[in-house]
């Protein structure tokens, strides 16, 4: 009978139906299915299916976004149960992301954040026009492993350097890793300002983030 429950979870994610995902998560709790089992055998297979469909070119960005949102709603329902059971869901890493001060471009940053969260990262999106102070505070608050800095303007990309300095001054660097991106940003710029990595698209950002947390782990 768990099979029909898992099927409902998978379907909810594939359909991108957040209400159905939340309902399936509640039903799992009521049926006594352990939350981690619901995630691994119910919701995650849906995510994988959507990821495969996207990779094959049959599904598009909106499919991915909706699946991610459904997954998130289910996780929100399951989170208190996880805490009660004192199990911590394994996250690939904690990421604080935002667009730097003076810059309001958000589309690319949103995509990077979305893809990171569907890839198992816990993502805290600070929005656009974010001051260095807010980045520092968020890194402390969320115990972030990685900070993602988006800048789309040649006038604001220097803000990435300022934020790295602010993290340094707050004694957060290392261990916190910094990755940068946005239209005018290049690998050369990333090394010039002492960032740990750069990617020109969201897929690459996920690979990079995985590498950066891997490196952080190894160093510990």
């Amino acid at each position: 009978m768990n099979d029909t429950a898992f099927e409902a979870m998978r379907r909810a994610v594939v359909d991108g139906d957040a209400d159905a995902a939340a309902a399936a998560a509640s039903a799992a709790i009521a049926a006594g299915i352990p939350p981690l089992v619901a995630i691994d055998e119910g919701f995650m297979p849906g995510m994988k299916e959507v990821g495969a469909g996207f990779a094959a070119g049959d599904l598009f960005l909106p499919d991915m976004m909706l699946a991610a949102r459904a997954m998130q709603r289910a996780l929100n329902v399951l989170e208190p149960e996880l805490q009660k059971a004192a199990v911590e869901r394994a996250v690939a890493g904690r990421v604080v992301i935002g667009t730097v001060a003076g810059d309001i471009h958000e589309i690319g940053k949103n995509l990077v954040g979305m893809l990171l969260s569907t890839s198992g990262f816990e993502v805290h999106d600070l929005g656009v026009n974010v001051s260095p102070e807010r980045f520092v505070a968020a890194v402390q608050e969320h115990r972030a492993d990685i900070v993602g800095l988006s800048a789309l303007l040649t006038t604001t990309m220097t803000g990435q350097r300022t934020i790295i300095a602010a993290l340094q001054a707050a004694g957060l660097r290392p261990p916190v890793k910094v990755m940068v991106g946005g239209a005018p940003v290049t690998g050369a710029w990333a090394s010039e300002i002492g960032a740990d990595g750069y990617s020109e698209d969201a897929m690459g950002a996920v690979e990079l983030a995985k590498r950066l947390v891997g490196a952080g782990e190894a160093a510990r």
Binding site: G57, F60, L61, P62, I107, G108, L111, D201, A202
Partner: peptide
Amino acid sequence: AIDLRSGAY
């Protein structure tokens, strides 16, 4: 209209 794969303008 965005590129449906990458979201690009």
